[in-house]
Every structure is written in structure tokens, then in C-alpha cells.
Nucleic acid binder design. Structure first.
Lengths: 195, 195
DNA sequence: TTGACAATAGAACGATCGTTCTATATCATA
DNA sequence: TATGATATAGAACGATCGTTCTATTGTCAA
């Protein structure tokens, strides 16, 4: 039972190791995961992957993946003709952790309850990212305390007066008393189907 | 000018190194980044961080971070009283890359155009994750070809008949002809404010 | 069959790894 | 000031690192 080793096989196994262990394998470990008995064979294949641009070496000579294996392709805005022809034009990749969160230390997540922002496309059970330590501006969606409860509202500033408005005609605008408490600004909304 | 070194300082510098380089520093590198001249000092502080549970060692003895430094706290669903009292109850952290994408290889991103799913809370310029190689079920939102254009619709199966319905009264339900083409199932919606 | 090339094995090299030791310097508190 | 705890320095250890070498095996085309 002879197995032909291909460049893609080796790449997949190294990426699998990275995803599982959170770090790149050493040459000894590559020797194990590709199923050979000599480190020089691992070196042989890694040299090929370096040549192919799949792997890189950082300033200290450590192996790194050229691309984040969890990143996704971002198709263009124009859907027409997709996906038959667009396979080539697809580009721009994103790591959500970096894309969505600017300041991890001053941010937290909140599972949405209620329908106060339904017309802004924020629905029950959505997850929002709330960034504290961020000054709310006119039109921002904020997490604010209203009547002793925390809720999401549009932050509307007209001159010196501030009003909190829901994105739902059910609720009336609120002109807060002196003790306006704002926990943070909503910087992103995430909704996941198929839990 | 004497600087007092604290456990938090060392932790921050190690996390900063990890975020910048995508890997954990060696003891020699820790020696550099915390500004001392002996590896044993790095070992001294790492031992403290291991003791404090900030760092771990994996099966092979490599240092790893106990928690993903990009992960965010998830506040409970009940907002009442937040955030004064909830600081202690906050738990459950998430890495979006892992949370949102199950199969990176068969998924891609799409910037939404049009308003066909507005009543489902999917708006123009939102980003959706489309998973190909996933069988659509009744009620799923799919990316489908309608009249030569790709658009998002509810996938509705009643017995053997399939209809595509928009979440917008402007558009009528569609009973597709034989050549129903579905690119994939929408598994998540992402909206980011404050680009 | 033969020759050329690709792939694997195994051994060896210096360099760096993580660890551990002793010794010194600094600080807080009695 | 004296004392113990904390923090830093420096040297040394075996183990593993990445690299490089020679030698052998396997594959495919001439």
C-alpha cells in the first residue's frame, strides 16, 4: 500500500496541526504528522512549501503560515454571474477577531433582548459588541440605562440636548434626566443561524 | 529611574508579543521584552504566570495562553442592573473565527446589496457568511439565482414543492423552474459600525 | 535495461531551547 | 539597623532545535 505524498497533503497536515495546537509544528513534529522517519524529509517538504509561498519565515527564522487558515474569501458586492465567473476575482480576506474588535479590553458582548432596535435590523438573540470607553456620537447606537433598565437606543444629539430614540415606533423618544448612564457604544452586530 | 515590574506588566508584554508575532515568545525573547538580562528572570516570572493560571503548558511542554487574548466577555441576557453588579457573573468567551465559521474551506463572505431580506434584519452593506456544500432546509436563508441574478431568499419547502420568498412584501414569492441554482446557505450576518 | 530525477533515510553539526543552580542586589518590615 | 522575602544576574546542564551532508530507494521516461 504505497501512498503518494503531495504538496497539498503536507500543507493540509501542517495547517491541521496549527489549528489544533495554536502553533506551528517543529521539523520533528512535521516528520511525525506526514509519516516519515527522517527530519531531513520534513525539511525537504517545508522547503517546497516555502518555495510555493504557502509558508514563510519571520524575522527570527520561525515558520509561519502565509495566510490565516480560518480567513474567508470576500466576494465582491456585485452578485451577478456569481459564482461561476467570479472564482478568480475573489479576494480580500478577513479575520473576524481582528475585523470586529478594535479594543478587546474595553469591549464585551451582549445577547440582545427586546425589540427596541428592530427597525435598525437588531433583533432578539442577536449578539452585539459593546465598546465602553468610547464617546457616543450623534446617530450611534448605545447601551443606556432607561428607567432602571439597560436597553439599546439611538443616541441623538442636537446642539446641547440629547435624546434617546428607539428604532421602533412602539417606543417614544426619551429626554434623559441629569443622570444619563451610557454603558457603551454598539460597534457591531452578529447573528448566527444553525446553532 | 527604577521601574517596578508587576505580574500584569509581564502578562501584557507576553500577550502583546503573541498578538504581534502569532506565536509565544521563547524564554530568551521574554528576557528581552520584559527588559532583563538573564533567562532565569524570565523563568521566574513565567513560573508566576503559570501559577496564576494565565499561562499553560501543552502536552509537549510549550507555553500557551490560557485564554484567547482577543476573546470578549459575554454578558448575560438580563441587562437589569448591568454593569455595576454583573462584573462577577460575566463569563463565556468566544473567538469569532471559530464561533462563526464551521467549515472555512466551503464558506465565503458576501457584502449584501438590495433589500430583499430587510424584514429578516439583513440590510444593505451587511456581511453574510455563505456556506456552500450545505443542504438548505425549510426556513433557511439561501443565496439563490433568480432571473439571472443572485439574491437572498427564504428557502421554503412544503412537501415536494420549493418556493423562494423574500423577507420584503415588495417582492412576490417565486416558484423556481427546474434549474434552481443555490450557491449556499447563509449561516451568519455581521454588521459593523464605525468603519 | 538503463539513466535521471524525486523521495526517503540516517547521521552529524552548532545553536538555541527550557531548566536549574549559586550568588548578589533590592525592598519592606520589625 | 537587622532580617527575611523578593527580584535579578550569570553560568551551566542535557535536550531539542534547524540545517546540512551522504547514501539509499523509488519512479518514470528514453
Amino acid at each position: 500500500m504505497k501512498v503518494k505524498r503531495t504538496l497539498q497533503d503536507v500543507e493540509k497536515k501542517i495547517i491541521a496541526f496549527f489549528l489544533k495546537n495554536g502553533r506551528m509544528p517543529s521539523y520533528s513534529e512535521i516528520t511525525e504528522i506526514i509519516g516519515v522517519r527522517s527530519k531531513s524529509v520534513a525539511h525537504f517538504w517545508v522547503a517546497k512549501l516555502l518555495d510555493a509561498g504557502v509558508l514563510q519565515k519571520d524575522a527570527k527564522g520561525f515558520l509561519t503560515l502565509t495566510r490565516n487558515p480560518r480567513a474567508l474569501k470576500l466576494a465582491g458586492e456585485v452578485c451577478a454571474g456569481f459564482p461561476a465567473s467570479a472564482e478568480e476575482e475573489i479576494r480580500d480576506i478577513v479575520s473576524f477577531d481582528e475585523y470586529l474588535v478594535r479594543n478587546p479590553e474595553s469591549s464585551f458582548l451582549l445577547s440582545v433582548t427586546g425589540d427596541s432596535m428592530i427597525d435598525a435590523g437588531i433583533r432578539e438573540k442577536d449578539i452585539v459588541i459593546v465598546e465602553t470607553k468610547k464617546e457616543p456620537g450623534d446617530g450611534d447606537i448605545v447601551l443606556a440605562e432607561v428607567d432602571g433598565n439597560w436597553t439599546m437606543k439611538y443616541f441623538c444629539r442636537k446642539g446641547k440636548t440629547v435624546t434617546l430614540e428607539a428604532a421602533n415606533p412602539k417606543y417614544s423618544p426619551i429626554i434623559p434626566r441629569a443622570d444619563l448612564r451610557i454603558a457603551g457604544v454598539i460597534t457591531a452586530v452578529i447573528r448566527k443561524y444553525h446553532k
